[in-house]
């Protein structure tokens, strides 16, 4: 565990807390893509199947359970909670996310570390996580205006990915045998998807104005 990895995990946790806070405080999920949240729930459920087979550390197990529970809680809020559900605009959230699931699974069947159940689901979760933010980014671009908390949620999520890249560079330099191409290449693709968002986020921050994405 290095400082980049820890900072990455913490910003990831922070992004989820910001999202839960937004939903809890405003009793609304406007601007939040249910499809992205469902994809994250699938990502965590598929990746942390090893909860039952491998023990790495208390920290690792605890965080896995937090990520699974929080992602399911968010999906539950948007789908079931009567007030939150009402604020969900499904006409804006039209990304065909099942295509991402199908493509990621197909890719995992061909590109994986080992042909085992756990490894295929691990690779699937890595590929799906790389593209899971797409419905959210498309929704934000469509609606144009981004409220503060939703903007911060995406910002922290992007920061988490950036820090994980620094973590891999650090590990590559300090651990001679660190070469895990599936995670690293997917991670770079995932981070690149945030580039556009970050550009507008920093412009609005610099000008001290509301975050607006061009249509």
């Amino acid at each position: 565990m290095n400082i980049f990895r820890l900072a990455g995990d913490m910003t990831h946790l922070l992004s989820i807390l910001v999202l839960l806070l937004k939903i809890y405080a405003t009793k609304s999920c406007s601007g939040v893509s249910r499809k992205t949240q469902e994809l994250y729930a699938i990502v965590f459920l598929a990746r942390y199947l090893d909860l039952f087979t491998d023990f790495i550390s208390v920290y690792n197990t605890f965080m896995k359970i937090v990520f699974i529970a929080s992602s399911l809680a968010i999906v539950w809020c948007i789908r079931v909670h009567p007030m939150v559900k009402r604020s969900y605009d499904k006409d804006l959230d039209t990304f065909r996310h099942y295509l991402l699931v199908a493509a990621s699974f197909l890719l995992a069947l061909f590109l994986h570390e080992k042909f085992t159940f756990l490894e295929i689901f691990w690779a699937f979760s890595i590929y799906l996580e790389a593209v899971a933010i797409l419905p959210q980014l498309v929704l934000l671009q469509r609606s144009g205006n981004v409220d503060n908390l939703t903007g911060q949620y995406v910002f922290f999520l992007g920061a988490y990915r950036g820090l994980y890249i620094l973590n891999w560079i650090y590990r590559y330099l300090t651990e001679p045998r660190f070469t895990r191409w599936i995670a690293c290449v997917s991670g770079v693709v995932q981070t690149a998807l945030y580039a556009d968002f970050f550009y507008y986020y920093f412009i609005s921050w610099k000008n001290n104005s509301k975050l607006k994405l061009p249509a």
Partner: peptide, 10 residues
């Protein structure tokens, strides 16, 4: 855990 393992990451 293996030094070259990313499975310890979240």
């Amino acid at each position: 855990t293996n030094k070259d393992d990313v499975h310890d990451e979240l």
